[in-house]
Nucleic acid binder design. Structure first.
Lengths: 162, 162
DNA sequence: CCCAGAAAATTAACGTGTTATTGAGATTAC
DNA sequence: GTAATCTCAATAACACGTTAATTTTCTGGG
């Protein structure tokens, strides 16, 4: 038929990606939960272990988080003494973020479990298929992000109370 | 290379799935936003268009939403007169949900744009690759969920465990 | 130096994800 | 027929996603 109906949910691409992500996250969340960490908090700790002294904008980019989310996450981690801030000398607008000793210890407590989960997934799904999946996902993002002219941002009307 | 360190973010599977999902959603969100709909609200409206008179538990399963989220979404849609509720006769705990005329009209206003976005994506990425991606994602979920109890339970008609 | 504009970070406001809890209505057991 | 139990739906509490607005600081042109 020329005019197809909308895909059913089971074949909807955003839904399929969501399901897959949740299936994967289910393998990681129990360990994180034992350490009272959300997936996002763990991303931040990993990123800081990779490279300390990032400013917040750079950290947000590496963790794929938006500023406001990261701002709240850092407040939380700071309360728990897992990170600390230092004012940048060059630019007083910037804070540089560092793992504390406790943060570093937490990383080393969680990391082995996290690695184990990756190996579980690789074993269950197959190394080749996993690599193929990575490539497809990457290519999808590339091609979709390429031509974005059709993104006419909407005209905002004032009614807030929608 | 698999035993040495955690994957970098660029190669992390949850992150890759997240990026892909967001790249896809970027194509749909502008249209939804023009109609003051979130992706989840749109999922609910689509599901109701498919099959009206669902109870909330069944609707949650079809929309892949958890109860509390759906509860809030339905309150929102009800305030906006896009859905209405009816008490089930058989079981007073259940509400059955229906699209109103306005909800139905909204569906028909948005659906063509949504279809067009799917066609854009298929064109950009390629039909074959898209199908391959679907299959891989499905297989990933299957293999990871094997042996786990599913979090988002689907309403399976048919065999109730005897 | 002063001021307009840009950038870094936070805050505000709203909607959703998630777990635990609650309350009303069904179901089962005894 | 009543008590224990299960189920449906809503609520509470917290964290995150997202857009807009605010504050502070830096920068560049007069």
């Amino acid at each position: 038929m020329s005019k197809r109906a909308l895909r059913s949910f089971e074949r909807s691409l955003p839904m399929a990606l969501l399901r897959a992500r949740e299936a994967v996250m289910k393998r990681f969340l129990p360990t994180l939960r034992e350490h009272n960490l959300s997936a996002q908090q763990w991303r931040v700790i990993r990123a800081l272990q990779d490279e300390e002294g990032s400013d917040i904008t750079e950290l947000a980019g590496r963790c794929y988080l938006l500023g406001p989310s990261l701002s709240r996450i850092l407040q939380n981690l700071e309360r728990r003494n897992l990170i600390r801030r230092e004012q940048s000398q060059d630019d007083n607008r910037r804070s540089l973020i560092y793992l504390t000793e406790a943060g570093n210890a937490l990383f080393h407590a969680v990391a082995p479990h996290s690695m184990q989960r990756y190996e579980d997934i690789t074993d269950k799904f197959g190394y080749g298929k996993l690599e193929l999946l990575y490539e497809l996902l990457e290519e999808l993002v590339e091609k979709l992000d390429a031509g974005d002219d059709a993104q006419h941002t909407e005209t905002k009307q004032g009614d807030k109370a929608a």
